[in-house]
Write a protein that binds this DNA or RNA. Structure first.
Lengths: 239, 239
DNA sequence: CTTAACTGACCGCTCGTACGGTCAGCAACA
DNA sequence: TGTTGCTGACCGTACGAGCGGTCAGTTAAG
């Protein structure tokens, strides 16, 4: 079938199918030949449109971030309260798993591909910028006395983690809707898991003790591995 | 250098270097030839010891989980309080990023490779079992009135997410120690981010409103994508 | 005619795996 | 003690599949 439909470029379709393949198999295991075959196109056509495989991934990434930033802008415009904004970001991140599945998974899976300069640092900057949005929300919340955290940057990473990790377990046909999950996550993050006792110092003592206990656990790293930390004095296995 | 050292098998060394490569590059981009070269071995030697590349990954995975389970048992044996146990698990998961780096990253990166039956479901079962440990801790905490969450299963996934996602940003030479990070994460999860106001119902209303706002945002999914949800109907606030 | 989408044969390369063969160590036996 | 034979770690080559990417040419819309 030559020529194809009237003047219709397959660019978008290629981008879409490519993102789906990366989402399902990962970048390295995605073959341009397979993508082409699924669209009844030639491999050469993909190269014609995008040049290289890497460029394809970059386009997926850029488009994905454009959507996320637009979303974040919408949140900023329609919600004034930092707490509401934080909740909205949590929901947005989770909802992208359902409503923007292919691109979300593709980007989250291949996140690390951008660490070592394989691709432009443009993407890396987008990522930092996106993180900064949440950090700013947290800082604003702390500033107004609505939120509390000694380290907004680290806390933002915590929030990102619980949302972004969802790609490893979230299934659209699962028992809970994204809205249910977001509500639960938001509530847990805001109100905490512990039943209020008023004594915050007691909590810190408990945390420190738990950490110290784990530090005494034996055989926590691979044998022969030249891993760094945890010199952990020769501690007896305790009574 | 043929013959090598007297009767010393290179099995462990291969396993170690392989895990490092997978941690740094991902499974698909890890070449047995490179691993062999780094150890001054022949590619054939690796095959001789392990048979296939997949078998190597499985061994890394199995050993990693053995260490995590031993750690979890230690926690169970040395801490009685569910809250302490939860904190300990958070710390253990984070500390593995430093103390068991190669295996942790290798397993977290290639987590998804086990979804589609590429490998034995033995690993999948290990994963479920590990999740169950945290779920049980949460359930025990709720049962004793120490913790509160309507969905321990989902909350466990939330906790896993914030810890496991650390592989994307944690660097051993970063400004904060694993202990600092664990303390912060644990405190946030337990005590919550919001400054106590006593009014829990108000929080739920706020959450629902934030979610509804995001649902109205335009262009949140890729164009032409046959994505499922979000018909933007009013969602019941749920009781 | 010009232009751009598109084809399909093709190249060079890398990778996992297969396989025949080498050699050191060790145990049994004469 | 000397020899013999087995075991298993290890090597080197070769192979076949699959990959990303190239390119000269075809088709059809403007």
């Amino acid at each position: 079938m030559p020529g194809r439909s009237p003047r219709a470029s397959s660019r978008d379709a290629i981008l879409r199918v490519f993102a789906e393949h990366v989402a399902d198999r990962g970048y390295a295991d995605t073959s341009l030949g397979d993508v082409a075959a699924e669209l009844n196109l030639s491999k050469g056509t993909i190269v014609h449109h995008f040049g290289t495989k890497e460029a394809l991934l970059r386009e997926v990434h850029v488009a994905y971030f454009a959507r996320r930033f637009a979303e974040a802008d919408f949140v900023h415009a329609h919600l004034a309260d930092p707490v509401s904004r934080l909740v909205a970001m949590v929901y947005a991140l989770l909802a992208a798993h359902r409503d923007d599945r292919a691109a979300s998974l593709a980007c989250l899976r291949e996140l690390v591909r951008y660490f070592d300069g394989d691709l432009t640092d443009y993407v890396r900057k987008q990522r930092v910028r996106y993180t900064e949005i949440v950090v700013d929300i947290l800082r604003a919340g702390v500033g107004r006395g609505l939120l509390r955290t000694p380290d907004p940057q680290m806390t933002a990473l915590q929030v990102f983690g619980m949302c972004n990790y969802a790609w490893t377990w979230y299934r659209p046909d699962g028992p809970q809707s994204v809205e249910d999950i977001a509500r639960l996550f938001a509530h847990n993050v805001l109100a905490g898991l512990v039943t209020p006792s008023g004594d915050d110092r007691e909590l810190d003592v408990l945390i420190t003790e738990a950490i110290e206990t784990v530090r005494k656990a034996p055989g926590r790293s691979a044998a022969g591995a030249p891993e760094g930390g945890n010199p952990a004095e020769p501690v007896p296995t305790a009574p």
